[in-house]
Design a protein around this nucleic acid. Structure first.
Lengths: 149, 149
DNA sequence: CAATCTAGTTCGATCATAGAACTACCGCAA
DNA sequence: TTGCGGTAGTTCTATGATCGAACTAGATTG
């Protein structure tokens, strides 16, 4: 009876469920001022700080959007902007200690989800799933990872 | 070198790419007033019309959100609200002929994507992918499809 | 040094989203 | 049949995300 859903929709369902769970975990840990979009941006940051354009590019959002998100994150004390020593125009967005307290929570929930999925599917199917999804990046990810020969 | 991304993020990447493509195809066919959220709502409609609450529930959005989306779709001439004969409180949201012109375009692009992915992965891996994703619905989809014995 | 490009910001507009409170209607139960 | 609790949908209002356009400051190149 369950009609055949498009593959992309199946992905959407699962990935949204994961997002929601991580978001909830963070909320329940007391970080109630973080939004989903802000969290997503933070997950794309490098440990030593990232440029705004890099974040925008990586998240496939406009620079203005990234600016707005970083503004709010900064006001809430999760990130700070420091000058980029290698380029006077640029600034690096860096985690504050507050952010460093959130990240493990998000990562832990992420790991829990991954484990549950693996338990539900079995190791083999989970590996196949990851394999297929990874291969699909070659045709779906604008930040195509370097073709590993 | 490509660090190991969470499975849910891999799904997000691919599903967003698909959304974008379908959205663009619809835009390029001249339907420039449709937004992504509106399109998603339409894709969740039944051919004979759906109740607003059903759409909200299915799309995991609040009733108010669904109302707002339907308002815009109605103003743009894609759907109409008709009384639900079986319940005086309810109304059915139904496609207009304008919507019936868009749907095939979206579905065609969807099919094209599906075909490309299958070509890229090979039939076997694509089947495994769909199999795993479908199984995951049991733990990620609030509208859990009936467990088929 | 001048022309040009790039990083980031600001302004302004639109869309998506949901909490709260409301109206109209349904269904059931005394 | 009357009345009360629940449901469908809407309106009001507020917030967040998003981006086009236009701008500033610093970098780059010929």
């Amino acid at each position: 009876m369950t009609r055949d859903l498009p593959t992309s929709l199946l992905m959407f369902i699962a990935s949204r469920a994961a997002s929601e769970r991580i978001f909830r975990a963070v909320q329940e840990a007391g970080f109630t001022d973080l939004t989903l979009a802000q969290g997503r941006l933070m997950m794309g940051m490098e440990p030593d700080g990232s440029r705004l354009s890099t974040l925008a590019d990586r998240g496939q959002i406009a620079k203005q959007t990234a600016t707005a998100l970083v503004d709010k994150l900064e006001r809430a004390g999760y990130v700070e902007r420091v000058p980029d020593p290698s380029d006077g125009r640029a600034r690096l967005v860096r985690f504050t200690s507050r952010a460093l307290a959130v990240l493990p929570i998000a990562r832990a929930e992420e790991a829990r989800i991954e484990a549950e999925w693996r338990a539900h599917l079995g190791a083999e199917r989970m590996d196949q799933l990851r394999d297929a999804l990874t291969a699909l990046r070659e045709v779906t990810d604008p930040h195509r990872p370097p073709h590993q020969a």
